[in-house]
Amino acid sequence: MIYKADPDQDVLTGLMSGDERALKELMRRHLDRIHRTAMRILGDAALAEDVAQTVFLKTWEMAPNWVSGKARLLSWMLRVTTRQCLDILKKKAPIYTDDMPDISDTSDLADKKMIKDDSAKMVRKAIERLPNRQKIALTLSYYENVSQRDGAEIMDITVGAYEALLVRARKTLKNTLIRDAEISTERPKDDRKLAL
């Protein structure tokens, strides 16, 4: 795929010649976005900062090798971000896969009860429990407004597969949020049933 215009071309020229001002400018443009993406995928601020740091340092280190016209710099950086996150998630929680069955998770009811009135935390928890690839697709498309074509390229899959991931992500998320809402309202009535 050939991209005729990269919005970061001006910064790239500076980066390739080792100009630190270019790196500063690149961070001004994209540090928030890269950090946000990592944060949404990982759900951990410290890890997200580590990922953002790695991505920018890799960009700096590899800049002289950059071949213009093959990909947008931001797409490449998002690709590195998602791969770094996937590596961390694989080490952190290997039990989550795309084939995870729809089984009620009753392991952290106390936690759920605590956050029942805090919708943002509830959504965050639900996103954290999404299978990794669904989580990445959702984060890219919903929060970062990445097009499906770019999202597919970042994840190195076909557009069809990317769309399927998004559909599954929304479905899983919906089911999880409904289930959490049910649990948080039913628990006071019937603790014994939910403790199963």
Binding site: G18, E20, L23, K24, Q53, F56, L57, W60, E61, M62
Partner: peptide, 15 residues
């Protein structure tokens, strides 16, 4: 974070 990245970039030679 930005300051940390800049500092590390100064210490990291480009390839």
């Amino acid at each position: 974070l930005a300051a940390r990245i800049l500092k590390m970039a100064k210490a990291t030679p480009q390839q």
